[in-house]
């Protein structure tokens, strides 16, 4: 795992990591920070939504099972067509939850990426985030 494989443009990009599982958040924070991202971790749905609205993040990593507001609710709110101006951030769903295919397709339509956390190591997650520009 050579640390320099991450392309340069990621440096300075901001990421909001909405993740309530502390250890996973810690691993993602570590890997993303190492790759040059500026990371904010929030584990509460409602707080995360507020933060996403108040700050101009480049990428939002969104877990679907977070307390106080589900990831689906956060996604719908952030991608609400009546939002002016539309949210600039790229939203990547990062979940371990298995959805029915049609539900998942519905979620995917509104997001910019969808990944299953167990399928990726933190390093591979960084690579994924790199490609969602």
């Amino acid at each position: 795992m050579e640390p320099n494989t991450t392309p340069q443009p990621s440096t300075g990009r901001t990421v909001l990591c909405i993740e309530d599982e502390h250890f996973i958040a810690e691993l993602y924070d570590r890997a993303l920070t190492k790759a040059g991202y500026i990371v904010t971790v929030i584990g509460d749905g409602q707080e995360a939504l507020k933060a996403a609205e108040a700050n101009d993040y480049d990428v939002i990593l969104l877990d679907l099972m977070v307390p106080n507001l589900t990831g689906i609710e956060i996604l719908r709110s952030l991608r609400n067509p009546s939002r002016v101006p539309p949210l600039r951030a790229k939203i990547i769903i990062a979940t371990n939850l298995e959805q029915r295919d049609d539900v998942r397709a519905d979620i995917e339509k509104q997001a910019d990426g969808y990944l299953v956390k167990a399928e990726l190591t933190p390093h591979e997650l960084v690579n994924f985030v790199d490609t969602v520009q």
Binding site: L27, I72, N96, L97, K117, A118, T121
Partner: peptide, 30 residues
């Protein structure tokens, strides 16, 4: 409510299995 509630037993079990797996793979990488 399907997208909220229709998470079957298996899907939930899988979620529970995947969380430690995510961590395991993460730590192994580190």
């Amino acid at each position: 409510s399907q997208d909220v509630q229709a998470i079957s037993f298996i899907a939930l079990s899988v979620h529970e299995l995947r969380t430690p797996l995510t961590l395991l793979r993460g730590y192994i990488e580190v």
